[in-house]
Design a protein around this nucleic acid. Structure first.
Lengths: 147, 147
DNA sequence: GAGGCAGTCAACAACGGTTGTTGATTAGCG
DNA sequence: CGCTAATCAACAACCGTTGTTGACTGCCTC
């Protein structure tokens, strides 16, 4: 994603004010690779700015999403996740803990055969790999042994 | 998906009773290709059985899901959708109206490169194509003209 | 064919994630 | 400097889904 400085410019250009809260959110998101939920962003920002409200975090994340600077993901983990990675990529999701990992795999070969297109205009192709992360697998195995 | 008769057997084998409500749900789902929401199933069943409760529909759909006889899909359309199609297939989703269409496309070539696997055990690979159905596209165009 | 118990019902509450609202306060930026 | 957006706290509400209760029904086994 863009740097906090670049986002600052963008917000100003859009007539949006660049508040300390927003800057703090920019900083948290920048370089983030864990696809945090709004709640997670809120927690992270709260460390340096304990008075920020969850409401404000949602607001700013939605602004960023509307501007296309982050991507909102619904991966069926209960809550939306915000992905600062704008490169074309896919996702690997742990079915237990909900952890999300970026995957760079070529999916250009996967197309909808014309006969099945039903007149749709197709905009995006997402691939979601689901499975279990090592931690959750170990935990499950440990449970089995003890059960 | 299995026929109502086969599902009846399965339910009995599991010690679950085959009530008229459940049979009505079986009948609605059988041959269904529209990936209905629980609400939609409820509406459909209500026609022949006006006293059925939404609660019961959820219960039975969850039972069927647990038994692997339908697949619960979260495609980011706000509510879960139930897919009676158990063949390996993918989905085409209208970003406007949420309509879902089954897609048979070969995605076996799409794999997670080993280096990116992070030790995950990968169980499934879902491909979701997003776009607009003809109806929603026309509607959007009409709006543009008038706007 | 009768009884036990799963299933169902209605009605209601509650959940979790997210958004709306209000009214007061703060502070960015032209 | 002042306009106005942004924020805050506190609360309510939304939607889809699940839990609960207590009474009733009817499937299925024996």
């Amino acid at each position: 994603m863009k740097t906090p400085a670049e986002l600052t410019e963008l917000f100003r250009a859009r007539g949006l004010k660049v508040t300390p809260q927003r800057q703090a959110i920019f900083r948290v998101l920048h370089g983030e690779t864990t696809h945090p939920t709004a709640e997670a962003v809120y927690d992270a920002v709260s460390e340096s700015m304990p008075t920020i409200s969850l409401r404000t975090v949602y607001q700013t994340l939605n602004d960023l999403t509307a501007m296309g600077e982050v991507q909102a993901l619904d991966l069926g983990t209960g809550s939306a996740r915000f992905d600062p990675n704008l490169d074309t990529h896919h996702h690997l999701v742990c079915e237990d803990c909900g952890r999300v990992i970026d995957i760079y795999a070529d999916a250009t070969a996967v197309r909808v055969p014309g006969a099945q297109r039903h007149g749709f205009t197709i905009n995006t192709t997402e691939v979601v790999f689901r499975g279990r992360c090592p931690e959750c697998r170990d935990q499950a195995r440990r449970k089995e042994v003890h059960g």
